[in-house]
C-alpha cells in the first residue's frame, strides 16, 4: 500500500502541490493528466529520485520519505525503455540481481523465468539497439520484474509503441498485474488506455489532484469541469445557483436540478446517452423542445444535435440508427428531449 500525505515538491518548472493519495495493495492506479501536469514528477517522488519539500510518503505503513530509490524496492519502467545499451538483454535483465545477493545459477534461472513470462527468451543475447520498440519495452518491464518489486511504476509505457503492439502489451500488463499481485502506478496521457486498465484513476492538473476515484465513477460523474472536459464530456453548461423553499437549485436555462451543498461556480452536464428523444410535446420539468440542427453517424449510434431555446450551447443526444429511421428524424425536425435522468452537477 502506498500513501502520499500532503506531498508538495516544486522542481524548476514542474510541481506537485499538496497531493494526498492512497493506492491499496494489489491495485492498478492510472494517473492521467495533460502534459506538464507533474505526472512524471509524482512517479519520481514515489521512486525516490525526488524527495518531498513537505509531506510524507508511506509504503506499507513505513515512512520512506527520505529513503533513496535503491532502498525502496520499487520497479520503474519509462516510456523510452532506457535499456542499458552497453549490455545485452540477459545482462540488462540480470542488472538488479547482484543487489539482491543473487548470482550464478540462481540468477540465470530468474532471468530465464522472467524472459519466458514476457516472451523474450529468444532475445537474451541480442543488444538493445537490435530490438523493436515492443521488444525493448518487454525487456524494460522484465528488468524491473526480475528483482521482484512489490510496486511497479510505469511512466507512459505504451506511448512510443504502435497501436497493435501497445494493445497486446496492455493486455499482458493486466495479466502480469493479476498474476504477480503487483501494486502498479501507471502514468498515461491516453484516456482509453486509462479506462481499459480498469483500476482507479487519478487526474492531475497543475500538480494538484483534480479528481480521484474508480474509473467508471469518474468517467460517469466527473467532479470538476476540468475532469469532465479531460474525459471528453459532450454537453457541459455553465449554471447558476437558485434558492428555493426546499433548498438550492442549479439551473442552466431550461435544464435544472436540485442540489445540496455547492462550492465554487456550478456547471451542469447532460449525458448524451441518457437523453430520451420524444415526439414534440410541451410541458414537464427538464423536457426541452428543440430543433434538430445536425445528425452525425458515429458508427454504433447517431449523434443528434438540437438547438434548444434558452440553453447556452446546442444539446447532443445519442440515439440508435433504428430510432432515426422509425421517427423519420431529419434536419429541422421538431422534437422534445427528456434530460431528467441525464443531468450531472459539477463544480468549476
Amino acid at each position: 500500500m502506498i500513501q502520499l500525505d500532503k506531498v508538495t515538491r516544486v522542481w524548476h518548472e514542474f510541481a506537485i502541490r499538496d497531493v494526498t493519495l492512497q493506492v491499496n495493495e494489489g491495485e492498478y492506479l492510472v494517473i492521467v493528466g495533460p502534459t506538464g501536469a507533474g505526472k512524471t514528477l509524482l512517479l519520481e517522488l514515489l521512486l525516490g529520485i525526488h524527495h518531498p519539500d513537505t509531506g510524507r510518503i508511506l509504503i506499507d505503513g513505513a515512512d520512506v520519505t527520505g529513503l533513496p530509490p535503491e532502498k525502496r524496492g520499487i520497479g520503474m519502467v519509462y516510456q523510452d525503455y532506457l535499456l542499458f545499451p552497453h549490455l545485452d538483454v540477459s545482462r540488462n535483465l540480470a542488472f538488479g540481481l547482484r543487489y539482491r545477493r543473487c548470482s550464478g545459477e540462481d540468477a540465470r534461472r530468474r532471468v530465464r523465468e522472467v524472459a519466458e513470462l514476457l516472451g523474450i527468451s529468444s532475445l537474451l543475447h541480442r543488444y538493445p539497439y537490435t530490438l523493436s520498440g515492443g521488444e525493448k519495452q518487454r525487456v524494460a518491464i522484465g528488468r524491473a520484474l526480475v528483482t521482484e518489486p512489490r510496486i511497479l511504476l510505469l511512466d507512459e509505457p505504451l506511448s512510443a509503441l504502435d497501436r497493435g503492439t501497445a494493445s497486446r502489451l496492455r493486455n499482458e500488463l493486466k495479466l502480469l498485474h493479476a498474476a504477480k499481485k503487483l501494486t502498479v502506478v501507471h502514468v498515461t496521457h491516453d484516456l482509453s488506455e486509462a479506462r481499459q486498465m480498469g483500476g482507479p484513476i487519478a487526474l492531475v492538473k497543475d500538480g494538484r489532484l483534480d479528481a480521484f476515484g474508480p474509473a467508471d465513477d469518474l468517467l460517469r460523474r466527473p467532479p470538476t469541469v476540468f475532469a469532465a472536459n479531460f474525459f471528453g464530456a459532450v454537453n457541459l453548461y455553465k449554471a447558476e445557483v437558485q434558492k428555493t423553499e426546499g433548498g438550492m437549485r442549479v439551473a442552466a436555462g431550461p435544464v435544472a436540478a436540485e442540489c445540496g451543498f455547492m462550492e465554487g461556480a456550478p456547471y451542469l452536464m447532460v449525458h448524451p446517452d441518457e437523453v430520451v428523444v420524444l415526439p414534440p410535446s410541451t410541458g414537464g420539468a427538464n423536457r426541452l423542445r428543440g430543433e434538430v440542427t445536425a445528425l452525425t453517424d458515429e458508427g454504433n449510434y447517431v449523434a443528434v444535435q438540437l438547438r434548444v431555446a434558452g440553453l447556452p450551447a446546442p444539446l447532443t443526444a445519442y440515439v440508435s440508427r433504428h430510432f432515426v429511421r422509425s421517427q423519420m428524424l431529419a434536419l429541422g425536425s421538431d422534437v422534445t428531449a427528456d434530460v431528467e435522468r441525464a443531468i450531472h452537477i459539477l463544480r468549476e
Partner: peptide
C-alpha cells in the same frame, strides 16, 4: 539520460554504483 541512472537505482544500485556500472 539521467533517467538511465534512475532505472539503475530503482534496481538497487547506489548513486555511485549507477555511475560506475551505467
Amino acid at each position: 539520460d539521467p533517467r538511465m541512472e534512475y532505472v539503475a537505482r530503482s534496481l538497487g544500485a547506489t548513486r555511485l554504483g549507477a555511475f560506475f556500472r551505467v
